[in-house]
Simulated scan of single mutants.
Amino acid sequence: MAVTDQLQQAQTDRKRSIIYPALNVFNREDMTARCQDETAPKVIYAVKADATFNSNTAIFLKDDIRTGKLNLLYDEYKGRETLCDIPKFFELKIEEQVRLIDPYIQTSLLVREMVELSYSNEKGLIKVFEKSGNRKDRYTALSYANYYANQLEI
Score class of each variant (00 low, 15 high):
150 N>Y: 01
37 D>A: 06
33 A>C: 03
123 K>V: 06
33 A>V: 06
116 E>D: 15
81 E>Q: 15
14 R>W: 11
56 N>P: 00
36 Q>D: 06
29 E>W: 02
48 K>F: 04
65 I>A: 04
127 K>G: 01
83 L>E: 09
146 N>G: 03
87 P>R: 15
34 R>I: 03
100 L>T: 10
99 R>W: 00
151 Q>G: 00
139 Y>P: 04
135 R>V: 08
95 E>D: 13
76 E>I: 08
144 Y>R: 10
92 L>M: 15
47 V>C: 07
100 L>F: 08
5 D>V: 03
96 E>R: 14
22 A>K: 03
74 Y>A: 15
76 E>D: 15
126 I>M: 12
13 D>G: 02
39 T>M: 05
153 E>K: 13
81 E>P: 00
99 R>E: 13
96 E>P: 01
100 L>M: 15
3 V>I: 14
16 R>S: 12
127 K>A: 13
83 L>D: 07
62 K>I: 07
17 S>P: 00
1 M>D: 09
19 I>N: 05
121 N>I: 14
144 Y>L: 15
1 M>Y: 09
11 Q>F: 07
35 C>G: 04
93 K>A: 12
46 A>N: 14
47 V>L: 14
57 T>E: 12
55 S>T: 05
28 R>Q: 09
111 V>L: 04
135 R>N: 08
55 S>E: 07
56 N>K: 14
103 P>H: 12
32 T>S: 04
74 Y>E: 14
3 V>P: 02
125 L>P: 02
10 A>F: 07
143 S>K: 09
84 C>N: 13
132 S>R: 06
76 E>W: 04
38 E>V: 04
146 N>L: 09
147 Y>L: 10
56 N>E: 11
140 T>L: 07
12 T>W: 14
69 K>Q: 13
61 L>F: 13
50 D>L: 03
52 T>G: 07
66 R>W: 04
24 N>I: 04
54 N>T: 05
46 A>W: 11
69 K>C: 04
84 C>G: 10
140 T>V: 12
90 F>K: 14
80 R>G: 08
33 A>T: 02
1 M>N: 07
71 N>D: 11
9 Q>V: 06
18 I>D: 01
138 R>F: 14
152 L>P: 01
40 A>G: 04
6 Q>G: 09
97 Q>I: 10
46 A>E: 13
117 L>Q: 05
149 A>F: 07
75 D>G: 11
135 R>Q: 05
44 I>K: 00
110 L>W: 09
60 F>W: 11
113 E>S: 07
142 L>Y: 11
151 Q>V: 10
148 Y>H: 15
135 R>W: 03
144 Y>S: 08
28 R>T: 00
25 V>S: 03
71 N>Y: 01
65 I>V: 14
85 D>G: 15
38 E>F: 02
12 T>I: 15
119 Y>I: 06
37 D>G: 01
78 K>E: 07
114 M>T: 06
103 P>G: 10
88 K>D: 01
1 M>A: 05
34 R>S: 05
